[in-house]
Design a protein around this nucleic acid. Structure first.
Lengths: 245, 245
DNA sequence: CGCTTTGTTGAAAAGAGTCAAAGATCGTGG
DNA sequence: CCACGATCTTTGACTCTTTTCAACAAAGCG
């Protein structure tokens, strides 16, 4: 198998030809490591499109006063940007939460690729829509109680990480600190701690050593009112028979 | 001037030829009125793309228990959907908040248009990115205090409505009830009432008869920490000299 | 004119934030 | 191998925001 998670993601939108796959693959060969807590891309129109191949990154915004709000979690196989041929700056920043491996794709090369292979352009548009769909779901999930909101995010991560082969049947590595999680959910880190304890004591999650286990997926889904449809992945991690391997 | 606000929106992404404008215009001729509190499009893959030409609509999600969370406000000139040639269902619903005028564009016609005029496709992709950018800003804005959050939304509406010619220098029609606003901000309608009073007594807004006036734009911007860059409109409603007319 | 919807107010309670301090854990260097 | 410092987690007490419930006033509409 080609280890390229971007291609795997894009093919969720529809099949690609071998030529298209190779053209994509060629763009993702040069990678660099990024240490945790380091910015990958700052505001303004970036010169290259950033592809995460390992680790967990995030898009965040800092309000006056220094409060950080994490807007999205970027997982292996995800592109950081709107990846549009046009220069389009989302007015916020991408940073690595854990140590990451990043491929920098020159914006022009990306534009040429889309020009040559319209199907890739459509797949990238589709990925933008998935990103929009996720952001909408996060927004809809706010204000329901921090416990449900956090549970919802855990459910989502389970599906997304499984879709790129980074989660087992019911657990995955999750190297964020509780302070990071606080900025994801939009609550204080003290409250994160209490919510985690509450979820743990309810038996909904097991979380230690930066490894999250969900003993009963269906139960957590019900608690969080999570329906994976908005993620648009075929796998789904729902099929009770389809396990790892 | 052609009264077509969609074209005006799309040209923010870049100029269109007369042919392209006409092809777009032809798709938006057949309109229908939609009464307030009526769904325009439900979940699932819709057969047509919906363009709002008048009124205020919203995309919303209902959680179990019946709580409604409004995810985005859709203004004249906005398309409701991801408007992708591929069938892509955002798992939520679009409804009219005030009486609306809607044009239904067959999905296939839209796909053909994009095929024929790639520039329109790129402009639509660009609109998707603007939508993503707005959703991210709303998400980032949550949890900062309901007063700042609501003020931020008012600032955004001022810019967006001005960009389509539906706002004066510092005021606009805003026909939502306080209950609607509550679902937009994600707080209770009782708290909306108190927050509005607080903003009023601070002199930041004047709001009565469903008409919102912002006496001092710069002051509200500062209070809400609003920077219109994420909206990607040229006008900006910031230029102190550029008034109506 | 009466009915329904919308806006307003008060009081009690829950959720979440802040402040401050004490344990755990981890990597590093001695 | 241990000690140290830094980071991360946990806990308690207190405050503030926001919710809920309930009632009433105001406005719109037939």
């Amino acid at each position: 198998m080609m280890d390229n998670r971007l291609i795997r993601r894009l093919e969720h939108a529809g099949p690609l030809s071998a030529t298209e796959r190779e053209a994509l693959h060629a763009l993702t060969l040069r990678t660099r490591p990024v240490p945790a807590r380091t910015d990958i891309e700052t505001g303004g129109a970036p010169q290259s499109v950033h592809l995460i191949l390992g680790g967990i990154a995030c898009r965040y915004k800092i309000w006056s006063g220094g409060a950080r709000r994490i807007i999205s979690l970027i997982l292996p196989g995800d592109l950081c940007d709107g990846h549009l041929p046009l220069p389009f700056a989302l007015g916020n920043t991408v940073g690595a939460l854990t140590p990451c491996i990043v491929a920098d794709i020159p914006r022009q090369a990306m534009a040429d690729l889309i020009e040559t292979y319209p199907r890739i352009g459509r797949a990238l548009w589709w990925m933008t829509l998935v990103k929009l769909s996720i952001t909408q779901e996060w927004l809809a999930s706010t204000g329901r109680g921090a416990d449900k909101q956090l549970a919802h995010i855990f459910c989502e991560l389970m599906v997304r990480l499984r879709a790129v082969g980074l989660a087992d049947e019911n657990c995955f590595e999750f190297g964020l600190t509780q302070g990071d999680i606080a900025d994801v959910v939009g609550i204080s880190h003290v409250h994160v701690n209490r919510v985690l304890q509450s979820l743990r004591s309810s038996g909904l999650i097991v979380f230690s050593q930066y490894r999250l286990t969900i003993p009963d997926l269906a139960r957590l889904h019900a608690f969080a009112e999570f329906d994976p449809a908005y993620l648009h992945v075929q796998d789904g991690a729902r099929a009770p028979g389809a396990l790892t391997g």
